[in-house]
Design a protein around this nucleic acid. Structure first.
Lengths: 141, 141
DNA sequence: CTCGGTGCAAACGTTTTGCAGAGCA
DNA sequence: TGCTCTGCAAAACGTTTGCACCGAG
């Protein structure tokens, strides 16, 4: 990584990647951002997408969501909130609950860590997967 | 995967893997379980460790912890509890907080998901990393 | 004898990285 | 001109899987 101290230039591409995340409420993966922007930037490289996602996260403009799936998701909403993921289809949605800062202090006393925050990930079955379609196939996202 | 309906035989090795997780409070990775058991079972294969971890998790004897690191950790304590991870060294510790089942119901109403549960992961800096050692090196676990 | 467990190696999906060239400040 | 950004490809990394053999029941 080691991008910490670099001066950043204005990059049209990075801005587009940022927009793709902020405008779409789907919490995209790096791959799906790549697919989306590939239409406009045919020469786009997946490595560049990853690099810029890292930079944007480091700058605090987006955040990385660890899910139960292999691939990380990215979220442009920096307001503290939680997520819920469908165990069946992988769909990831926002859950807006009041952030409990008190529990962070409690855990700080319990563990001796300097607590920086916490993330809550709910899991379950989404409404679309509750009654599976006739043919048995499951939709993904 | 698709191990769901299989009848299981008694496997000394699986039992050892289970013991390695339950007895050690460090929330080991597959790799570190492998390293540990390699001493006693020189022919042990990493694939076998992964396979058995999957089986044990499926049987509800252990659980998989998603952390900020790439590698999954495994926990033999099935009592519901949370975890905290050090952003610096990766250390993962238990945090025993009362499980809030009410919030699951609330989220169920909010999202339309059939909520199965939630996991809380705290992050911060552990006491050992707070004041880094003279030489600047950081300990890992 | 049957079917699950194991070791081995290859494959997999995601992410990172080294390098050379392009282009902003 | 200097340093960042980019594309490309290879590599890294954790994990899964196909296969042949071993061994429990």
């Amino acid at each position: 990584m080691e991008n910490r101290m670099k001066e950043r230039r204005q990059s049209k591409l990075r801005e587009e990647i940022y927009n793709a995340i902020v405008q779409h409420p789907v919490h995209p993966t790096a791959e799906s951002i790549y697919e989306q922007l590939k239409a406009t930037y045919p020469s786009l490289s997946l490595g560049t997408v990853y690099r810029n996602l890292g930079i944007l996260a480091e700058q605090g403009l987006i955040r990385r969501i660890d899910t139960y799936d292999a691939a990380d998701r990215f979220d442009g909403n920096m307001q503290p909130h939680s997520h819920i993921q469908c165990r069946q289809c992988g769909r990831l949605e926002d859950v807006f609950l009041p952030y409990d800062g008190q529990v962070d202090q409690m855990v700080e006393r319990m563990t001796g860590f300097q607590v920086e925050g916490h993330a809550v990930l709910f899991s379950g079955i989404c409404s679309r997967c509750k009654v599976p379609p006739e043919d048995g196939r499951q939709q993904v996202q």
